[in-house]
Simulated assay, not measured.
Amino acid sequence: MKLPPGATGFNPPPSGQADPRVFAGICQHAARAIDATVAGVAPAGVTPSFHTVDITDPPLHIAVLRHTTLPFIAFACPHANGDVTVTFVDHPDLAAAITNLTDAQVLTVDQLQTSLAQVDLNSLDPGEHHQIGYWKPTTLGELLFNFWD
Score class of each variant (00 low, 15 high):
residue 142 E to D: 10
residue 73 I to S: 00
residue 132 I to W: 08
residue 117 A to W: 02
residue 109 V to K: 07
residue 149 D to L: 12
residue 61 H to P: 00
residue 15 S to Q: 15
residue 37 T to V: 14
residue 60 L to V: 01
residue 48 P to V: 06
residue 55 I to R: 06
residue 77 C to S: 10
residue 55 I to P: 04
residue 88 F to P: 04
residue 2 K to W: 02
residue 115 S to D: 15
residue 85 T to A: 13
residue 55 I to H: 00
residue 14 P to G: 09
residue 120 D to L: 09
residue 144 L to Y: 06
residue 9 G to K: 05
residue 25 G to E: 14
residue 14 P to Q: 10
residue 123 S to A: 14
residue 126 P to E: 15
residue 34 I to V: 15
residue 22 V to P: 00
residue 14 P to F: 05
residue 123 S to E: 15
residue 115 S to T: 11
residue 43 P to L: 08
residue 64 V to C: 14
residue 5 P to T: 08
residue 135 W to N: 12
residue 121 L to N: 08
residue 96 A to S: 12
residue 21 R to T: 13
residue 112 L to C: 04
residue 81 N to F: 12
residue 49 S to M: 06
residue 8 T to R: 05
residue 90 D to V: 04
residue 3 L to T: 02
residue 109 V to C: 10
residue 102 T to W: 05
residue 143 L to H: 02
residue 81 N to C: 06
residue 10 F to V: 08
residue 56 T to R: 14
residue 132 I to S: 03
residue 90 D to E: 11
residue 45 G to K: 12
residue 52 T to V: 15
residue 102 T to K: 05
residue 112 L to D: 05
residue 133 G to V: 09
residue 86 V to S: 03
residue 98 I to Y: 02
residue 121 L to H: 08
residue 118 Q to R: 13
residue 79 H to F: 08
residue 1 M to Y: 05
residue 65 L to I: 00
residue 25 G to L: 08
residue 123 S to H: 13
residue 129 H to V: 05
residue 132 I to E: 05
residue 104 A to C: 12
residue 59 P to R: 09
residue 3 L to G: 05
residue 56 T to P: 02
residue 43 P to F: 09
residue 109 V to M: 01
residue 105 Q to M: 05
residue 4 P to M: 09
residue 124 L to Y: 02
residue 15 S to W: 13
residue 94 L to K: 00
residue 91 H to E: 13
residue 148 W to Y: 12
residue 120 D to F: 02
residue 40 G to L: 08
residue 72 F to L: 02
residue 65 L to D: 00
residue 47 T to P: 01
residue 23 F to T: 04
residue 130 H to I: 08
residue 17 Q to I: 00
residue 50 F to Q: 08
residue 8 T to I: 07
residue 64 V to L: 08
residue 90 D to N: 15
residue 81 N to Q: 11
residue 72 F to C: 00
residue 141 G to V: 01
residue 46 V to E: 14
residue 4 P to D: 12
residue 56 T to V: 14
residue 94 L to F: 03
